[in-house]
Design a protein around this nucleic acid. Sequence first.
RNA 1: GGCGUUAUGGUGUAACUGGUUAACACGUCGCCCUCUCAAGGCGAAGAGUCCGGGUUCGAGCCCCGGUAACGCUACCA
Length: 505
Amino acid sequence: MKSTTPMTENTPAQQAPVRVRIAPSPTGDPHVGTGYIGLINFLYARQRGGQFVLRIEDTDRARFVATSEQMIFDSLHWLGLTWDEGPDVGGPYGPYRQSERTEIYREHAEILLANGAAYRAFETAEELEALRQRQTAAKLPPRYDGGHRELPQSQIDAYLAEGRSFVIRMKVPTGSTTFRDELRGDITFDHANVDDQVLMKSDGFPTYHLANVVDDHLMRITDVIRAEEWISSTPKHVLLYKAFGWEVPRFWHMPLLRNLDKSKISKRKNPVSLVYYQQAGFLPEAVLNFLGLMGGGMPTPTPVEVVNGAKESEIFSLDEMIQKFEVPAIRLGGPVFDLTKLKWLNGEYLRALTPEAFFQAVRTRVFGDDYLRQIAALMQTRIETLGQFGDITNFFFADNVMPPQDVFLPKKRTLEETLAFAVEQLATLEATDWTAEAIEPALKQLGEAQTWSVKENFMLLRAILTGSTMSPPLLESLATFGKARSIDRLRRFLDTQKKLLAGKR
RNA sequence: GGCGUUAUGGUGUAACUGGUUAACACGUCGCCCUCUCAAGGCGAAGAGUCCGGGUUCGAGCCCCGGUAACGCUACCA
């Protein structure tokens, strides 16, 4: 069956009510990219009087993080984005959590199996890995070789009878797919470059591709506004819509936020967790405003334009953004996420506060009761006058501390091995739950493996975290200070040391 | 390697359907203000629009050809 997809028929009536969605995966801290795509979707929906849906894509058991979903809700709420339908607020097209929709995907996979658009493949992960290696060795593009594409029914039955596990793959026909990207125009992919994508994994969960298409259709999504990294997968999605006989939604692929070196934004090079921005004392309005500036959907002020007697600026409230934002005006070059400008913007917001509002912000955000209570608990036995409280707790309130070498470097260690160990500490901490009880064994285990004594191990971390060799207990301090900020501090320390090292050479 | 996308000062963006010395903001530097540091005010440097051709009286905007960066290339999203 030859399938060529003319774009003209995928465009729903321009003025039909819109429904959009974001679909984050609960695999860790909520990501600024989620905030960015969320904002764009939100603005588009509000501007057009449509609905904005939040869907949780938790089909990846291996990467699932239990606390992540709530953090996503919290961060999005913190930003001030509100959704009309979602796992927490319900809605007519639920459930909005993919792990609760497995039956739906199974049924739809059956449909594809029945109409020949998909097939069972019985290879093991190891076999596929071996195949990939052979292909790469032969300098061929790594792709599924279609080995079980046309398995005879008798063979399939035999495999099934012996209980062999299988995946369901999409049978990509020959030909090509052209779809319209609302921001870029038509994009064509030759099916020779589209893999027979796995639709259902052997654990019974769907992959993104199947779940996404099924849900977007069932949830009546009209506009898929997502990041550019999805462009290459879009032909698969279009093919799936066609295989089901469904109408294809509009696609808008937003540029990817970048690090300063232009690579896709990553935690190695930028604080990427929304939780970090919240805890580091950024105002949600400023973060949102900054995100809105990314990609150029907002008007750029020009010198002659004066609005209401004031110079037009780059400062926009959410409401103003809803009014002024233009999705089709988005710039396609990946914008660099420049912390410097975000900080300036945040400063502008801070200065615009009334003195009382600013005071309240300091009181709740810097010296919040809960935070202070935890810190106080650590200090009661350690000070003789209240006046000493600030002496060894200042690192809790500082944006950054930077211990000098004679503070952080253990006597018997070289700088190189110390920094290498700090890198390991960072990796370990990133992978652990953020409680004193969980951090302790993880850290000790690392120390043992690397033959660092507990004392050296903890002292190094203490120095990095607090800037001093004397501090409240390390584990409790870490727990109180928070994961996002602790990790950021470690990272900044390592960056600084790396630069220092590079400077010496 | 294959496929795709993108390309305006260091960064984010502007420049109506091709039309004067490529504009604004952040950052940087200088000056003013000031006990300091910020904030604020004033000013400066910084790109000739990735490169090479072409069309045109005229191109950042159109055409052709390159290059580079980025993304995808998973039983991750």
